[in-house]
């Protein structure tokens, strides 16, 4: 069986700075994968690279199809969907419209038809996504009127409305309080259990460790560990990456 996402030797350079050095990462069908690492380790760069916003070396394949040379919107059409740490909603559109932008792929002809007829028919996918994240009540609200946590959820809803093959979430829990973060975790887990493959980046180790199937750890653009949550949690390199060079002395037995 082919992996949903297969990234091999992904490298990114910014000028002379190496942001990612040959990262290998795979996401299997209905897996929830965590990607963690200290600030500046290259996690967001990795998502930018696979979603086509940053040029990268190496090979990125979605369902075995090589994505090389495809623009971001083409990758999105192929089923690679993502969110941003800074949410990046369309602030000029209501929540429902935010989802509608992503959900439809109109041809010129359909645009013309829509122009002549009444406004667009409701789409089942939007209802489903709203329901999945309990956002039905907010569909006619402008994003600016929502709390940070609610905006994050809308970002996730907009990313899943296309029923993507792979959903990449960049720090969905940043800015949420502990309770909200836990609730988000439960929802992501439920989504994965329904068969959605996901790549989750977050600094909230509690969230990542408690919901992910497997975890990859980056530091200075390199993969330093990967495996099941318990394995990663106990890995000395991971602990020292987080607590600093001298951590070994503290975290020793």
């Amino acid at each position: 069986m082919t992996a949903v996402l297969e990234a091999q030797g992904v490298s990114v350079h910014f000028g002379g700075v190496r942001a990612l050095a040959g990262v290998d990462l795979d996401v299997q069908e209905s897996e929830l994968i965590g990607l963690i690492g200290p600030n500046g380790a290259g996690k967001t760069t990795f998502v930018d690279a696979i979603s086509g916003f940053v040029r990268c070396g190496g090979r990125v394949a979605l369902d075995g199809f090589d994505l090389a040379g495809l623009s971001p919107h083409e990758r999105a059409l192929r089923g690679l969907s993502r969110t941003w740490q800074s949410t990046e909603l369309f602030d000029d559109l209501t929540v429902r419209e935010n989802l509608a932008v992503a959900s439809r792929r109109p041809s010129l002809w359909q645009v013309a038809k829509e122009m002549l007829g009444d406004s667009a028919a409701t789409s089942g996918e939007i209802e489903q996504a709203l329901e999945l994240l309990d956002l039905g009540w907010a569909q006619d609200v402008m994003p600016g009127d929502l709390s940070q946590g609610q905006r994050k959820l809308v970002g996730v809803a907009r990313a899943i409305v296309t029923q993507p093959r792979l959903l990449c979430l960049d720090e969905p829990a940043a800015g949420l309080d502990t309770g909200e973060s836990e609730e988000l975790g439960r929802r992501l887990r439920a989504l994965a259990n329904k068969g959605q493959s996901m790549l989750l980046i977050d600094h909230d180790m509690g969230l990542v460790l408690s919901v992910c199937d497997r975890i990859f750890v980056l530091e200075f653009g390199k993969l330093i560990a990967s495996g099941k949550p318990q394995e990663v949690r106990g890995d000395q390199r991971v602990v020292s990456a987080y607590l600093g060079g001298a951590a070994a002395e503290v975290s020793g037995p």
């Binding site: 909230d204 180790m205 509690g206 318990q230 607590l243 975290s251």
Partner: peptide, 20 residues
């Protein structure tokens, strides 16, 4: 610095500590 458990908990989340 001496209070390793508390520090770790605040970083890795109480839930994770509890699970582990």
């Amino acid at each position: 610095r001496g209070n390793r458990d508390l520090l770790m908990a605040s970083y890795f989340g109480e839930r994770a500590t509890a699970t582990l």
